[in-house]
Design a protein around this nucleic acid. Structure first.
Lengths: 329, 329
DNA sequence: GTGAAAGCGCTAACAA
DNA sequence: TTGTTAGCGCTTTCAC
């Protein structure tokens, strides 16, 4: 930068100002500076810039399992929105585990990110989230909510899961099994509550044998469903509460040679690119990841800009894709 | 940091050295410093650190379409490997377009990343890649190769596509259509060459009518396949050259109510989590994204550490998953 | 409209 | 074993 200044016959501060447009510069001077920049192939040093300015134009994202297409879509949306706003995205994988999460968050905080978006692992409200807020770094929670005083964006869980279950009820099913995701996170709880509420509305008691826990693994889900469906008193319908659970469930059914919806009706929370390639086409509640991601970024940028109103908790509606796996024709 | 130093009764440089373990410090002093750090809740400023040290411990990744599960897996593997090595990952989406790519790369370069991993868009060998190398930033190309003097890691394309095609030939097919991906990138070319080589080996001429271009979009692929398969003189087999093409192809076939492998045999490059959920199960050549990602990081870290041997070009073999869509029983 | 100068918070010679 | 000091490359007040 010194070299550019010398070449243009101006001071470093003028170079800085033409670079950033931070104050009026004589057109002739500007041109000279620009020529000098061109000539030297100068490229500004963002690190020094950040240090001097106190902002990095960088946002951290802590998320689990980028391999999950759902999170992939989220990262995609977040990246796009951030980059449109001149920010850059640093991603860290928390493996849905508080210790990894703490490490990721520490590293992001060290790097002076201007803000963070976190899909909290189970238990992070006691460890990693306080750590973030106490540094004063703007934070928005995504996907799953916890009770901490920060903005949150996630899909509509409760009523979507309830609708799914009601649809099955409307079709006359009474023994409806459910495959839950990872315990301890709000999405699992809320979706399960939706399922429970639908049953309760019709005066049907929850049968513990029909409640399956797949953790966050398709394998566990497969095993659980396999066990349930091999038993004597099979349910007539299944609801899966997230995409991993769905894959596990479908594998189990296929392994048992059970047909959908003939042997068992099937509905799922989360949609797939291949939902209507599957035979039968899967009836599903689809999340709007794009909106979730973009909204998270909007909320975060507001905070970064210094806005200090009450934390928001936004629910993005899901879309019900009515296809064939429910047994409707 | 000054405050920590004062509290511990030492100089800032000692604090720095206990923080980084960069020189021997009296155990008692170290303890005092650590206590002071604890007490003040001090957290180091990575930006200042990077500026002073000249390294950011940051790596940039330019990639297209994080929504594609293939790239999602790649990012996942890269992130893991980097974080194990104490680096942090900044991702940028190039949308498979040189202009976006240039913007992404500029931003990463400004931020003084210690190295870059790039899945080059078509045409970037003339614009964005030279820009990177001329800054001296270590670079490794991933997924697709181009002829520039840097390390490269990608899947085995040619022989995998040839094997796929040969399998069909062995089953007696003679009219085998192919659905290619985005034109102008090496993976498309190489896979198509594999297809061509297999045909040539059996003395079969390439029929231009059987060569479909799906760009990088499932929609285009669907349209093309739909058109071809609605025609009179249908091929008896189809090979799809990447996962997006596969989805498009399957949609088209389903739309036409054509059965696999009854009406047409089908093989694909790229595997899916749901490949054996599909009816029939898809026979596919699966990339080893994990290895590709990890290898890319290894190569990059070598360069970052200053190694200066000849650029490597690594091909990671694919795995042939023999399932049912080919028509074998 | 432009420049001088004081940092931003750290690292790493060099000294002691 | 520890401290002093000179930057790293920029932004930004303040003065002109």
């Amino acid at each position: 930068m010194g070299e550019v200044a010398r070449l243009a016959g101006v001071s470093a501060s003028t170079v800085s100002h033409v670079l950033n447009g931070t104050r009026k510069v004589n057109i002739a001077t500007r041109l000279r500076v620009e020529a000098a920049i061109e000539e030297t192939g100068y490229r500004r040093n963002g690190v020094a810039r950040s240090l001097a300015a106190g902002r990095t134009h960088t946002v951290g994202l802590s998320i689990s399992a980028l391999t999950n297409p759902y999170f992939g879509g989220l990262v995609h949306a977040v990246e796009r929105a951030l980059s449109d706003a001149g920010y850059v995205l640093i991603v860290g994988d928390s493996h849905d585990d508080v210790d990894s999460e703490r490490r990721v968050v520490d590293s992001l905080l060290d790097r002076q990110v201007d803000g963070m978006i976190v899909a909290p692992a189970a238990g992070s409200e006691r460890t990693t989230l306080p750590k973030i807020t106490c540094t004063g770094t703007p934070l928005v929670l995504i996907d799953r909510g916890v009770d901490v005083g920060s903005d949150q964006v996630g899909p509509e869980n409760f009523s979507s899961a309830r609708s799914l279950t009601e649809h099955l009820l409307d079709l006359g099913h009474r023994r409806i099994a459910v495959v839950r995701g990872l315990a301890g996170i709000s999405s699992t709880t809320e979706r399960f509550d939706g399922y429970s509420a639908a049953l309760a509305d019709r005066g049907i008691a929850i049968d513990a044998d029909l409640v399956l826990d797949g953790d966050s693994s398709t394998d566990v889900a497969e095993r659980e469903v396999h066990a349930l469906m091999s038993g004597a008193d099979r349910p007539t319908a299944l609801v899966s509460l997230n995409n991993s659970m769905t894959i596990g469930t479908l594998k189990a059914l296929r392994g048992l040679n059970l047909s959908i919806p003939g042997d068992v009706a099937f509905l799922c929370y989360d949609d797939f690119e291949w939902s209507d390639l599957f035979e039968p086409k899967l009836t599903a509640a689809a999340q709007d990841v794009e909106t979730i991601g973009v909204t998270a970024v909007e909320l975060l940028l507001r905070r970064i800009r210094g806005l200090d109103d009450a934390p928001q908790r936004i629910r993005v509606p899901t879309t019900f894709h009515h296809r064939n796996s429910c047994g409707c024709t």
